[in-house]
Design a binder for these strands. Structure first.
Lengths: 255, 255
DNA sequence: GTAGAATATTGACTTATATCAATGTACCCT
DNA sequence: AGGGTACATTGATATAAGTCAATATTCTAC
């Protein structure tokens, strides 16, 4: 019912922000269906919640975990990062604008640090306050429960990527994951890779060199087109989808 | 406050059942702290829920997903299983006795089938009924929310295993994961590997042959002892923990 | 606009683990 | 108890992706 028609954006904006995502989905305000959590985090009760600004590489401070919290990403990207004792780095999960991350001190100790992978602002809602709100608001509850299982299944998909897929297949999956989670609409052809090659590698269980080679390989295959270093366009949706699903016999990715 | 003292079990029972887990934790009834969800799934409101019996390899039937459900594992093991188009199999997540799995039809379509990896019984609670109960029961709610973030962080840990760990490190992590999730108490030395080598491999993103070799390697190192094919004892906790955390320089696992 | 630093790409080489194939062992059923 | 099937182990080999090192590109700050 919003009077506006979808704006004719063909490439998504560089800066990752909720407003951009919202705009690119073609709807506004309560009409925006792409990131439903955000609006609920924006309720009056939550407006008072502290907003934290982070730069690329910044870690959330320990004191931000002194009680269980829900982080709501307004713009940028955050990740849960873990390091093995010898320094190997993994990014266990990513959160984009409009998404949230449940954390508490014990969890953090177990699984890793929360870091920003770009200039980021997150709203920090104490878990207790959030739970009270959940109890009062059936609609929020419905959305939250729905979203929670979505997130779990995102993690499952990610495990599937890491467990048995080749680098090219992981990369193809990741490109679709980005497209979905950034709510890039159909009519947008090219969009920004919001994190560095190194971070992509650490998320996909690869080395940065391999990410480079695989991206080039996908480009040679005609599946995608790289525009500069940080933008990508999917040229062959079907082909890329097949690669992501492991349908292709094999993709020789080395040179 | 329970009058009973912990039974002197030194090896855990072969059959994976809630009663066994409960017994091996050394407490009984409401005193049993190891698997809190189970008792709540055992409430009067849920007793009416259908129980399904499955054999090793059985898939939950599509009609069991016609509405969103919570599966509560009473005994055995279930897994979410996915297959890439060329047949590669992954086990995305495991659920042991006392644990639960949220599923709905859409999820299932996205992430895979639910299968049993052993003779198993699961209680099938319609999501709607479960949510009503959650609203009424603050204690259940607390436990459920707590458990939900635990499960999420279990998935994170698993991603960390899959992303950057060597086969030996994954295996070491998995042994601890089993020990924890089966609530094997300290005084129990040996316990049963509840799933096949192939399933371990598919959960850890390895091949069955590699699992074999790695287990043998860990045994040679003196970290564990294999008793028959399905029991294992941890001999060197600290050493195994170091391997799991990637602290060891490297472990030559081939022959 | 240029210098310097950070990030990304490319190349040559190594090796861990997958693969393929054979053998061994456990378990189930009659 | 024994025969057959499924599961697990062991061995030999190939290769995908990691590693190390050099070069190129992009970004930032002055």
């Amino acid at each position: 019912m919003s009077g506006t028609t979808p704006p004719k954006i063909v490439s998504s904006p560089d800066q990752l922000s909720f407003e951009c995502v919202q705009k690119s989905c073609g709807f506004e305000g309560e009409e925006c269906i792409c990131r439903p959590m955000h609006f609920h985090f924006d309720k009056a009760e939550l407006r008072s919640a502290r907003t934290i600004e982070l730069n690329d590489g910044d870690q959330l401070a320990p004191e931000d975990f002194s009680e269980p919290v829900v982080f709501a990403v307004l713009n940028g990207v955050i990740a849960v990062e873990s390091h093995l004792s010898d320094g190997r780095r993994s990014l266990l999960t990513l959160r984009f604008p409009g998404e949230y991350l449940d954390m508490n001190r014990a969890d953090r100790h177990a699984s890793g640090e929360v870091v920003a992978l770009a200039p980021t602002s997150v709203k920090l809602v104490p878990r207790g306050i959030f739970e009270e709100l959940l109890l009062k608001d059936a609609n929020l509850r419905r959305i939250y429960w729905r979203r929670s299982t979505d997130i779990m299944h995102q993690q499952f998909d990610h495990s599937s990527d890491l467990g048995k897929k080749t680098p090219a297949e992981r990369m193809a999956s990741f490109i679709f994951e980005l497209r979905n989670r950034l709510s890039i609409p159909r009519f947008v052809e090219e969009f920004t890779l919001p994190i560095s090659r190194q971070s992509i590698a650490d998320y996909l269980g690869l080395r940065a060199e391999t990410v480079s080679r695989v991206l080039k390989g996908l480009e040679k295959e005609g599946a995608v087109k790289l525009i500069g270093k940080h933008k990508i366009a999917i040229l062959d949706f079907k082909g890329l989808r097949m690669i992501a699903n492991g349908a292709r016999p094999r993709l020789s990715n080395h040179r």
